[in-house]
């Protein structure tokens, strides 16, 4: 078991290194010249050249990469020995955004909590609704409740996120004024405001996902409820609740956990849209903003952080497998 964890950790490190190289290469072979992008309209060839040196873009790619990685672990200083004001970028340094005049790390750390709250809240919401709905549907297989749940899920699942978000925004806030206009405050600062702001984004993301999990859970449950060991559990005289939750749901959990892990990782995609609609200063909005501004250091940083998050989510799923299914542990 320990061997498995060590092995997966090793694989994770290899993946992160590979990933960072890929991302780095990808953005350096883009036709856009990052040095050119630092000065906008006021660019002259001299300025561009000077900025290129400032950014270290005149160095060979391998050196750029090692400097970048070193920056992550030890921090780095821009403009060193250039006779211009030095810019300090403490570890973990993911680059410096000249257009926003801030280290990328700082931009991301400001944005991450917002997205994290968004993700966690909607995750809990959709898992609770989805799994419960799926279990209820499976227990009422073929009856109207099952049909109703399934068709609702089907409709909600096919609605695009931006559509759901906009409808909610327009109906709940604009039309009926049931909630104030979104204005993000951290939960530690002003919880009621935080909650009012986050409720609709949570619901927006949770809607489609919950619909998906209703269907996934139902399929899993229908399958495991037909297993021989469920009959054994009933023959033991267990309550129907214990049979359903402890035996059937437990056995059907593996694919649900897999999907949940992946979805949590991919949540950023949904966050981009929702953060735009509800004006939340999260990673998604940061990413969109930096793409519009062609702020390459920020794009690189966000991509790296997001990918790392997905890799970690996968690792956690693998660990969960072992907790759930003892057969994985032993083989």
């Amino acid at each position: 078991m320990l061997g498995f964890v060590v092995k997966r950790l090793g694989a994770m490190v290899v993946m992160l290194v590979g990933l960072s190289i890929t991302v780095f290469l990808l953005f350096s072979v883009l036709p856009a010249d990052p040095a050119r992008l630092t000065c906008g309209k006021s660019c002259t060839p001299d300025v561009v050249q000077a900025n290129r040196v400032r950014l270290g873009l005149d160095k060979p790619l391998t050196e750029q990469y090692t400097t970048y990685v070193k920056g992550i672990f030890a921090g780095r200083t821009y403009n060193e020995g250039q006779g211009v004001a030095e810019i300090d970028c403490p570890a973990p340094c993911l680059g410096y955004s000249f257009s926003q005049q801030k280290p990328v790390t700082e931009l991301i750390t400001e944005a991450v909590p917002v997205t994290m709250w968004l993700a966690l809240g909607s995750f809990v919401l959709w898992m609770a609704i989805g799994v419960t709905g799926g279990v209820i549907a499976s227990l009422n297989r073929g009856r109207w409740l099952d049909v109703a749940l399934q068709s609702t899920a089907l409709v909600l699942y096919s609605l695009p996120t931006f559509f759901v978000g906009l409808i909610m925004l327009i109906v709940v806030i604009v039309q009926f004024g049931l909630l104030p206009y979104p204005d993000y405050y951290p939960p530690t600062q002003d919880f009621p405001k935080f909650f009012d702001t986050m409720l609709l984004p949570w619901l927006t993301i949770a809607t489609a996902s919950a619909a998906f999990y209703v269907r996934l859970t139902r399929t899993q449950m229908v399958e495991t409820l037909g297993e021989d060991y469920i009959r054994t559990a009933r023959a033991k005289g267990l309550t129907e609740r214990a049979v359903t939750v402890k035996h059937a749901l437990r056995a059907g959990l593996t694919p649900i956990v897999t999907a949940a892990g992946l979805d949590l990782g991919l949540l950023l995609g949904g966050a981009i849209i929702v953060e735009q609609i509800f004006n939340l200063p999260g990673v998604g909005r940061l990413a969109v903003g930096s793409v519009i501004d062609s702020d390459l250091p920020v794009i690189t940083g966000v991509t790296l952080v997001a990918a790392t998050f997905i890799i970690i989510a996968n690792f956690v799923v693998d660990l969960l497998y072992m907790v759930i299914d003892p057969r994985v542990r032993l083989s």
Binding site: Y229, T232, G237, L238, T239, E240, D325
Partner: peptide, 26 residues
Amino acid sequence: DAELRALRGQRMAMIFQDPLSSLHPF
């Protein structure tokens, strides 16, 4: 149902053909 449940596994019990699939794997 409640009375059945109390009987099952207490006054009457059952074993099945395929013991592997009849035991919960987890």
